[in-house]
């Protein structure tokens, strides 16, 4: 359970088959407010997410899940501790550079998708690339490529309102991943969807991880968390336990499909 280790522990010296983590949180503390009104949202969280890995975060409301996600993507800064995004320490970056790195490295998907209704799906997905200075044609090519990857190859010229909820959420995933971005942060992405569309979304997230993205997923649905390589449980701003799909972190090991 490397999540519990401080940043310079022995666990860090172990060779990583997948190289450096895309995002590394080490001893992260986040306190909202000051003095007697200070509310600690995270109380010392360490977590790595590597390329090819889908990590799910579970925990009750107020346990710090969304704070964790915001810190991992550079939308918020830690009160203490360190956040490395693709090897860059976020706390040292001036705001403008931080915004730049965030745009280039991390993409967000929320429960309430916010595609712009007056733009086509392809235009929506191309938007982050255009904001980064890519030409319209280049951005469109990138958009069509990533739309294809999420199974929306034919939907680029439709408008968001013409799509089903599941298709819109897949478009939001495409937008989050367009360009070179390798970190996908998803906050309850299945929350507003029915079971079938939710299943579709978790499959797309799994495929993106298998295609070498690093995916950090906040969910309260055990069934979706179960698609992850690792599930961490947050409570009161701390990681209380985590479960590894390979069962390398202790007990268990009941071969399920020969069960009971």
């Amino acid at each position: 359970m490397t999540e519990r280790e401080p940043s310079a522990s022995a666990a860090d010296q172990l060779p990583r088959p997948d190289g450096e983590p895309i995002v590394r949180l080490a001893g992260v503390v986040r306190v909202h407010g000051e003095g007697p009104h200070a509310v600690p949202a995270l109380r010392g969280v360490s977590l790595d997410v590597r390329a090819g890995e889908l990590v799910a975060v579970m925990g009750p409301s107020g346990s710090g899940k969304s704070t964790l996600l915001n810190l991992a993507g550079g939308l918020d800064r830690p009160t203490e501790g360190s956040v490395l995004l693709e090897g860059r320490e976020l706390r040292d970056l001036p705001p403008k550079r931080l915004a730049e790195l965030r745009r280039r490295s991390a993409g967000y998907v929320f429960q309430d998708l916010n595609l712009i209704p007056s733009l086509t799906v392809a235009e929506n997905v191309a938007l982050p690339r255009e904001l980064d200075g890519a030409s319209t044609a280049t951005a469109r090519r990138a958009a069509l490529r990533v739309l294809d990857e999420v199974g929306l190859a034919d939907m680029g010229d439709r408008f968001p309102d013409d799509l089903s909820g599941g298709q819109r959420q897949r478009a939001a995933i495409a937008r989050a991943l367009v360009g070179e971005r390798r970190l996908l942060l998803a906050d309850e992405p299945t929350g507003a969807l029915d079971t079938r569309a939710g299943d579709e979304i978790i499959q797309v997230l799994r495929q993106r991880a298998d295609a070498r993205a690093a995916v950090l997923l906040v969910t309260h649905e055990p069934r979706y968390a179960a698609w992850a390589d690792r599930v961490v449980f947050l409570r009161d701003g701390r990681i209380t336990d985590s479960s590894d799909a390979q069962g390398t972190d202790g007990a268990g090991g009941m071969g399920v499909v020969s069960a009971r």
């Binding site: 968390a225 179960a226 007990a251």
Partner: peptide, 20 residues
């Protein structure tokens, strides 16, 4: 509760993997 929850989640992960 915590030990059981990790173990049950691992079971759920394995089942999901088997289903995939």
């Amino acid at each position: 509760v915590q030990a059981q929850r990790s173990s049950t989640m691992r079971t759920l992960q394995e089942l999901t993997r088997a289903k995939r």
